[in-house]
Design a binder for these strands. Structure first.
Lengths: 223, 223
DNA sequence: CACGGTATCGACACGGTGTCGACTCGGTCA
DNA sequence: TGACCGAGTCGACACCGTGTCGATACCGTG
C-alpha cells in the first residue's frame, strides 16, 4: 500500500516488454478525456478505444477504471512532493514567504493537473484505494505542517494555542476544499488569481495571529 | 430552482392523495440505508423494496435515485437554516460566542444527518441539481458571513484585511471539509469532540487576529 | 520449428437503469 | 348500476457498462 513499488503490484499483471506504451496511451487518454468530462461519464470502452485497443485488452493493463485514476494521482502526488521538497527552507528567515511558497506550490502543481485532481475527489468517496492514497498524502503533509508550527512556537515566533496537529489539519483541509472549488469553478469560489493570497493570509493569522510574522516583518501583507 | 416550491416541481408527477406515505417510506428507507452503505452501493430496487413497492413503481414517485437524495438534502438544509435563524444575535455583545454558536449549530444539524451529508458530497460531483442546491446554500451562508465581517470591521472590532467575501468563502469551505472529514472518520481528522473548538479558533484569528475579540473579551480562549 | 509467454479480442453472463403497456381498484356521474 | 377515469401498480423488455473466459495471433528463444 506504500507508494514505493508503484509498478510491480498495482495495475497490470506481470508484464514487462513492449506493452508499456499502451499503458502510457491509456493514461494519456484518461487525462485527456478527464479534461472534457467527469470520470463517471467515461467508460472503459472510451479509454480502450482512445488507446487503440479493445475493451478486454484494457483489463490486461489495468484492473479497473479507478486503477487508471490511481496511477494518475500517484504521478501528480509525486510531482507535488518533489516540488514541495524544492521549496527553499526560509521558515526561520522569512516565515511568511515560506508558507506562501508552499501554498503556491500546491496551487501550481495541482492546478496543472486540475482534471485529475477533480476526478480523484469524485472517486475518493467510493474507492478505498484512492481514499487510502489521498489519506496517506494528507497525513504526511499534516505532519510536516504540525512540526513546522511546533518549531515556530518553540522559537517564540508563533503564540501557543490550538494543538498544532489540529490546526494543521484544519488549514490543510481548507486548502484542499478552496483549491478544489477554484479548479472546478464552483460558486461561491475565490477568484483563481487571488486564491493563494487568501489562503496565505488565513494561514498566517491562524498560526501567528498576524500577517507579518518573524524577525524581518518583511513579508507582504494581505493584498 | 429556488427552494420555495419544494413539492410541486421536484420529484414525482402530479399525484396527491394517498401515495404520500409511500413517498415518505422511500425517503425513510433511503436515509436508513445510507447509514449502512454509500449511495452508489444502494440500488433503486433496494429503495423500492424497502418501501414495499416494485422498482417501476419507484419511478412513479421519484425520477431517479439522485432525486431522492435531493429531497433528503432539501430537508436537512431547511433544518440547518431554521436552526441558524434561531441562534441569538450576540455579535455585538459577545462576538466569540456568536461565531461559536453558528459553528456548533452546523456541526449539530449536519452531524444529526451525517449519512445524508456524506452522500450529498458524493453525488454533488456528478449531479447538477444537488450541486446547484448546495451552491445556493453555500452562497447564502457566504453572504451572511460576509455581511457580519464587514459589520465588525465598520464597528472597529475587526481589522481590515482580505476582502470579506473571500475570507467568508475560505472559512466556510474549511468548515465544510473539516466537518465532512469528521463525520466520515477520515484520516487525518480532528477528533469530533474538538472540531467545533478548532474551527472556532481559526475563525476568530482569521477575522479578528485574536481569540478574544469584542468589548467584553469574555469569550473562552482556545481549549 | 516447436514452445511459452505476451498481447489481443469476440462472445458471453451479469446487474442496474429506465420505459411501456397492461392491469387493478376506488370514486364519480349519467 | 354500470361505464368511465385516473391514480397506483407491476411484469417484461431493451439498453448499457462491467468483468471474465476461452481462443487466437504474434513474437523471441532454445
Amino acid at each position: 500500500m506504500a507508494s514505493a513499488p508503484a509498478r510491480s503490484t498495482r495495475g497490470r499483471r506481470p508484464a514487462r516488454p513492449s506493452g508499456d506504451d499502451r499503458e502510457g496511451a491509456i493514461l494519456a487518454t484518461a487525462e485527456r478525456l478527464l479534461g472534457e468530462r467527469a470520470l463517471s461519464a467515461i467508460s472503459i470502452d472510451d479509454l480502450a478505444r482512445g488507446a487503440g485497443i479493445s475493451r478486454p485488452t484494457f483489463y490486461f493493463y489495468f484492473p479497473s477504471k479507478d486503477a487508471v485514476l490511481l496511477a494518475l494521482l500517484d504521478r501528480v502526488v509525486r510531482e507535488a512532493d518533489a516540488a514541495l521538497a524544492a521549496v527553499p527552507d526560509t521558515l526561520a528567515a522569512d516565515p511568511s514567504r515560506y508558507w506562501r511558497e508552499c501554498i503556491a506550490t500546491f496551487h501550481r502543481t495541482f492546478g496543472a493537473h486540475a482534471a485529475v485532481t477533480l476526478a480523484c475527489a469524485e472517486v475518493r468517496l467510493t474507492n478505498a484505494e484512492v481514499l487510502a492514497l489521498w489519506s496517506r498524502v494528507m497525513e504526511s503533509w499534516t505532519q510536516a505542517v504540525t512540526a513546522a508550527i511546533e518549531g515556530e512556537r518553540e522559537r517564540g515566533t508563533a503564540p501557543a494555542g490550538l494543538p498544532a496537529r489540529d490546526l494543521a489539519i484544519a488549514l490543510n483541509s481548507m486548502n484542499e476544499r478552496v483549491l478544489y472549488s477554484s479548479f472546478a469553478h464552483d460558486v461561491p469560489t475565490v477568484d483563481e488569481r487571488d486564491v493563494v493570497d487568501v489562503l496565505h493570509t488565513v494561514w498566517l493569522n491562524a498560526i501567528y495571529q498576524t500577517t507579518t510574522p518573524g524577525p524581518t516583518g518583511s513579508s507582504r501583507p494581505a493584498r
